[in-house]
Design a protein around this nucleic acid. Structure first.
Length: 140
DNA sequence: TTACTAACATAGT
DNA sequence: ACTATGTTAGTAA
């Protein structure tokens, strides 16, 4: 089922089905099911209150590489940033491959893909660069 | 199933 | 400006 969460940074839409978070969208068309209560909304509420909270159950990634990537990202502390190159070396891959996989990440915010920036410049963001800016500004 | 190809949120020179 | 990278998704056989 699709629900909305009203965050201070904008509306976050997510798919919570079969006791698992299937997907997260930003900048999506707002639908009617706001104010639902589940592990995803719990986490988001805590996150935007500056508190830590255990992650909801997430749908499995399509590839094993994306699983490694997910673990690597979750290990970055809140407020910190890594460059594509640094994280790529840590995971034993290339910066370009890393960027490709990041763009396919279905869970922005939950998996902190916004904490990855280019060596020079901000880097890109699949759901609109505005979110990357706002999220980083919020965390620091 | 494998093989080849192009597209990328890049980095290094 | 140009090359070197790894992962993905698509196509074709």
């Amino acid at each position: 089922m699709i629900y909305n969460f009203d965050s201070p940074l904008g509306v976050i839409t997510y798919d919570w089905s079969q006791q698992t978070c299937q997907h997260i969208w930003l900048n999506s068309v707002q639908r009617e099911n706001s104010g639902h209560h589940d592990p995803v909304s719990d986490y988001l509420h805590a996150y935007f209150s500056g508190q830590r909270h255990s992650l909801p159950e997430l749908a499995a990634p399509k590839t094993t590489f994306q699983l490694k990537l997910r673990r690597g990202l979750l290990n970055i502390p809140c407020g910190a940033v890594r460059t594509y190159g640094e994280l790529a070396r840590q995971l034993g891959t290339s910066a370009q491959g890393l960027g490709q996989a990041l763009g396919a990440n279905p869970f922005p915010i939950l998996i902190p893909c916004h904490r990855i920036i280019a060596a020079k410049g901000p880097g890109g963001f699949a759901y609109g660069p505005i979110w990357k800016e706002k999220l980083l500004a919020f965390e620091s």
